[in-house]
């Protein structure tokens, strides 16, 4: 199950993505995220609740980042979950996104 929840963090609005961002949910995710983007070209996505991320998920995130830039906004990814870190590492896309990844003490 893929879900987007609005949460407040220190007064900033953050979208928390949870569940699986995979080929099964890619179309839905793209649609919903695009809706959010059209309201706020600057988006912060909290990835801490992502259980699974596959190539299509990475593509959606990257597309969103480029869309945000095209609308003179920005996309930042924060609190990458272990699944996200693993996928980013495998595909070597951390650099493409450019967001700092905090590696937990574990």
């Amino acid at each position: 199950m893929f879900q987007i929840t609005r949460i407040k963090d220190n007064g900033h609005e953050i979208l928390q993505l949870s569940g699986d961002l995979t080929i099964y949910s890619a179309a839905e995710a793209r649609h919903e995220l695009e809706t959010h983007l059209s309201q706020h070209p600057t988006l912060v996505l909290d990835l801490s609740e992502i259980d699974e991320l596959d190539t299509s998920g990475v593509q959606v995130l990257l597309w969103l980042k480029r869309e945000a830039a095209a609308r003179v906004g920005a996309l930042s990814l924060v609190r990458h979950s272990p699944a996200v870190v693993e996928t980013f590492d495998l595909l070597h896309v951390t650099g493409i996104f450019g967001d700092p990844i905090l590696i937990g003490p574990a």
Partner: peptide, 9 residues
């Protein structure tokens, strides 16, 4: 033009 189920990689 982006199709989220298509592979561009």
């Amino acid at each position: 033009d982006f199709d989220p189920e298509r592979c561009y990689l």
